[in-house]
C-alpha cells in the first residue's frame, strides 16, 4: 500500500503509523457528557467501504494525515493534512461570521 503524503510524496505504508478512526470527535476537555466520552474512546463506525482515518507519517515528516481509504479494496481516494481540517473549519467559521 502506498500513501501519498502531501508533504513527502508517495511512500510505502511501512513509513506510517495508523491512528485509527478519523470520525471520532473528542468532547470538550471539561465536558461531563460521559456518553460522548465513551463513544469517543470506544465506539467505532468500522465501515466496509470508504473509511475516514488518521495516519501519522511517523517515518517521514511526522504529520498526521486524514486519509479516505476503502476497507474492501484498500484503495485510497484522498489524503490531506489533519491540520488542514482545522484551518478550513476556521475559515468556514470566519465566512459564517462575515
Amino acid at each position: 500500500m502506498l500513501i501519498t503524503c502531501p508533504y513527502c510524496g508517495p511512500r510505502d505504508v511501512i513509513e506510517f503509523t495508523y491512528q485509527g478512526d478519523g470520525n471520532r470527535e473528542r468532547p470538550d476537555p471539561a465536558s461531563q457528557n460521559f456518553e460522548a466520552w465513551n463513544a469517543y474512546v470506544y465506539d467505532r463506525l468500522n465501515p466496509a467501504g470508504d473509511h475516514n482515518e488518521i495516519w501519522q507519517h511517523s517515518g517521514g515528516c511526522r504529520a498526521h494525515l486524514r486519509v479516505v481509504r476503502n476497507t474492501l479494496t484498500h484503495e485510497i481516494s484522498s489524503v490531506a493534512f489533519v491540520r488542514g481540517d482545522h484551518a478550513s473549519a476556521a475559515r468556514r467559521k470566519a465566512e459564517d461570521k462575515a
Binding site: 503509523t17 491512528q19 473528542r26 488518521i54 501519522q56 511517523s58 511526522r62 504529520a63 498526521h64 489533519v82 491540520r83 482545522h86
Partner: peptide
Amino acid sequence: MQHLEYFLDVIWPD
C-alpha cells in the same frame, strides 16, 4: 512522543 504529537496535530492544533 506519538501521543503528544497526536494531540497537538489532531486534537489541539490551535
